Amino acid sequence: MSLHFSVLASGSTGNAFYIGTDKAKLLVDAGFSGKQMEQLMDTVNLDPKELDGLLVTHEHSDHIKGLGILARRYKLPIYANEKTWKAMEGLIGAIPTEQKFIFDVGSVKTFADIDVESFGVSHDAAEPMFYCFHSMGKKVTLVTDLGYVSDRIKGTIRNSDVFIFEANHDVEMLRMGPYPWNVKRRILSDVGHVCNEDAGLALADCIGDKTKRIYLAHLSKDNNIKDLARMSVSQTLQEKGFAVGEDFKLYDTDPKVPTKLAVV
């Protein structure tokens, strides 16, 4: 028995995350077409028919594009909070009542041997939330789409074995880039996205003795690059006294290619 996971894809164009054990298999978000989601899962030898649930973080299209298709095709239950369900109306098509479940912010749901803890984040969606997964003494945290990282969030996610954490943009690339100013202002705001340096600073407050892996996620395709994100976060953590590469390792995620199925 083991807890295993894969960041199936992550970026400004789409996001999907898998985590499971021998007894429970969960997908968080489905930000690609149904066909693309099937292909991503097949790449790491996962079968959508075996999923026990689809968990939703928020209603933005890069997180729910294929949600309705997968749910209907494989008769999968969807879990989201009430405000997110309301915001998804008209975006994911009709979902049978027996496949619709409420998962409140700040609550815990148990799927066999995985306890899923939800927590709210600051982002410009109806009621965005992300998750900590607890199983067999291990803790995996998935958190992107952050305007800023509050002390409450830090307390919830602290000392995870694995972090999948947002490093969305380089501030100078964003400022100098082609986006309209209103879009730049939204990204830089407290309900936007976390930049590389702020990701490093937040992680410095959350890394614990158990932490072994950090995956940098939700990189902007226009305002960031993998090497820059990794260098910026690593430098910030080193300045805070962490031995990056020794105490824990930093990993990239990709908008099209899944990470290897890893065991915690």
Rank of each mutant, 00 (worst) to 15 (best):
E239Y: 08
S33I: 00
I95C: 09
G53E: 05
G20L: 09
K83P: 01
K23Q: 15
S6H: 05
A112M: 12
I207K: 02
E166R: 04
K49D: 13
D254M: 07
M231E: 11
L54D: 05
A126N: 02
A24R: 12
A94P: 05
H123D: 01
K23C: 08
V116C: 06
D222G: 05
R186S: 12
V194M: 14
K109D: 01
A204K: 02
V257E: 10
W181F: 12
A9H: 13
F101Y: 15
M173L: 12
V116G: 04
Y251A: 01
L91Q: 13
T156V: 14
D170G: 15
F165I: 02
T43W: 05
C195S: 14
E246S: 14
V116N: 04
A16P: 01
A24E: 05
G200V: 04
K212M: 03
D198S: 07
K154G: 12
M129P: 06
P178V: 13
L91V: 11
R152Y: 13
V257F: 06
G120C: 00
L55T: 02
G93F: 03
T141D: 03
K139W: 06
V105Y: 01
R152C: 07
V121N: 03
H4E: 11
D161P: 02
R230E: 12
D170T: 10
D124L: 15
L228T: 13
G120K: 06
S122G: 09
F111D: 04
A126Y: 00
Y215H: 14
